[in-house]
Design a protein around this nucleic acid. Structure first.
Lengths: 239, 239
DNA sequence: TGATAAAATATTGTTAACAATTTTATTATC
DNA sequence: GATAATAAAATTGTTAACAATATTTTATCA
C-alpha cells in the first residue's frame, strides 16, 4: 500500500509546467526521437490528469516536436533531413530580414543591451559552463528578433529555434557541434553598430551555414525508460 | 416537443469539417472580429459534442483566428494594425525567398503549370466570378511556395495567407480592394521564365505593397446572430 | 433614479466512467 | 517451431455529469 502511491506523492504541475518539462526533455536529448509518449504514464509521472497530458501533447504536436497518429498516440518527432535543411534555409531568410530591420531601427540602447548579453555568454564559455552558454547564445538570436520589432518574424524565429535542436539531434547526434561561435556574435553587433547591413548579413550567413553544413544521417541510440529520461540531471541545470 | 429538436436534425460533421466551416465564416466576414463563440451554441448548431468544438476553437486560436481567454471563452480575433503590418512585411520577406528559390529551381513544367493557373484565374475575372477569382489568386501564391520546395517557407506562407483576410477585414472592411491584380501574376511568371530574379522580386513587392498600403482603421459593423452568420450564402460558393 | 449586493443563470473547465481501437499475449493448427 | 486466429490487456478516444467561474438578473437601499 506504499510503493504504488509514491508516484503521486509530489506537487501537482500546471499545464505550462508539464509542457515545459517534456519539451526540455526532448530538447536535452533525454527523450530520443521516436520515443512513445503514453498518456497514463506521463499523467502518473507528473501527478496530473490524463486530459491535461492530452492537451500538452497536442500543443507539442503543433510545434512539431511530437508526432500524433489517430488512435496510436504520440511519439517524439523524427524530422527528416529535408525538413532540417528547410528549417535552416528558412532561418537564414528570417535572420537576414531581422538584420535588415535592425540596421535601420536599432539605437545605442539596443547595441549596449546586445553587448551585455554577449559578455554574459562569453563568461559562461570561459568558466566552462557550456549549458548556460548555449542558452545565452540562443537568447542572443531571440533578442535580435525582439529588437527588430516585427512580431511575426519574431514568432517564426522562435518556432524555428524551438524545432532546431531536435533536427540536430536526429541527424547529427549529441556532438556538441551545435553551438554558436560568439566571436561571430560580436562581429554582428559591430556591424549593426556601424549600420553595415552587408557585413552583418554575411557574418550571420556564415554563422548559420557553419552548423547547417554538419547535418547528416546518423544511426539511432539505445534508449532507457521514460521515467528515468524525464528526470533531469542536476548538472545540466543552468546557473 | 418538436422545435427544440430541430437544431440536431442534421448530419454530424467531422472535426475538420467544423473547423473549415467556422474558419470560412470568419474569412468570409460573416463572423465579425470580436464575436463571441459559445461552445454549446456551436455544438448544437453543428450537431456535435462540446468537446469537439473545444478542440476546434483551440486549433483556431493557434492560427490566431480566434482569441481564447481562460474562463471567458473564445472570440473571433481582432488583430491590431501593427500585427497586420508585421504580417505583410513578413509576407514580403517570405515571398521574396520563395522567388529566390524558384528562379533557380523552376523548370518548363512548373512554368506551364503556373500559366494554366493564371488562365483559370483570368477567366474567372472575365466572367465576373470574383469569389472564384480570389480563391485562385490565393492559390497562385500558394503554388509558388509549393514549387519552391521548402516546406517550412510554404508552411509560413500558408499561415500568413490564412491570417491576412481577417486583418484586412478588421482594418479595411469588405471593400473588395484586397484582391491581386493578375497582370502582376503574369509579369511574375514571365520574369521567372527568364530567370530574372530582380524583376520578379520587384513586381512581387509592388503587388504586395499595393494591398498593404490600404490598411487603416475603420469603425465596427453591426452584427446579426451567430446561427445566421454561420449559414453560408449560396452565391458565395466557389465554382 | 442610480448604485451595490445577492441570487440566479449561463458558460467554461475538469473528471471519472465508458467505448473504441490497437497492441500484446495466448492458443490452435499445420 | 512457424503462422494464423483468438483472446486478453493496454491504450487512446468520447461523453455525460459535475465543479468552478463568469455574467446577467433581481432585490435592496440611499
Amino acid at each position: 500500500m506504499s510503493a504504488q502511491f509514491e508516484k503521486n506523492d509530489k506537487i501537482k504541475f500546471s499545464e505550462d509546467e508539464v509542457l515545459r518539462q517534456i519539451e526540455q526533455a526532448i530538447l536535452d536529448h533525454r527523450l530520443a526521437p521516436g520515443t512513445k509518449l503514453k498518456e497514463v504514464q506521463l499523467a502518473d509521472l507528473f501527478g496530473v490528469k490524463r486530459g491535461m497530458i492530452r492537451k500538452v501533447l497536442t500543443r507539442l504536436a503543433h510545434s512539431r516536436l511530437v508526432d500524433q497518429m489517430p488512435n496510436r498516440g504520440a511519439t517524439v518527432a523524427r524530422p527528416s533531413v529535408k525538413e532540417g535543411q528547410d528549417l535552416f534555409a528558412t532561418r537564414r531568410v528570417i535572420e537576414s530580414a531581422v538584420l535588415q530591420n535592425l540596421v535601420t531601427h536599432i539605437d545605442h540602447r539596443g547595441i549596449a543591451h546586445l553587448r551585455k548579453m554577449l559578455r554574459r555568454e562569453q563568461k559562461a564559455y570561459q568558466r566552462g559552463d557550456s549549458a548556460t552558454a548555449l542558452t545565452l547564445s540562443v537568447d542572443f538570436h531571440r533578442e535580435l528578433a525582439a529588437l527588430a520589432g516585427n512580431s511575426v518574424l519574431e514568432e517564426y524565429l522562435h518556432d524555428i529555434i524551438r524545432r532546431t535542436p531536435l533536427v540536430i539531434l536526429t541527424h547529427l547526434g549529441d556532438d556538441e557541434q551545435n553551438r554558436c561561435r560568439n566571436q561571430e556574435h560580436e562581429a554582428i553587433i559591430d556591424a549593426l553598430e556601424k549600420h553595415d547591413l552587408k557585413t552583418a548579413t554575411r557574418v550571420m550567413q556564415q554563422h548559420l551555414l557553419h552548423i547547417e553544413s554538419k547535418i547528416q544521417h546518423k544511426p539511432e541510440k539505445p534508449q532507457a525508460d521514460l521515467a528515468t529520461l524525464l528526470r533531469r540531471q542536476p548538472e545540466a541545470v543552468q546557473a
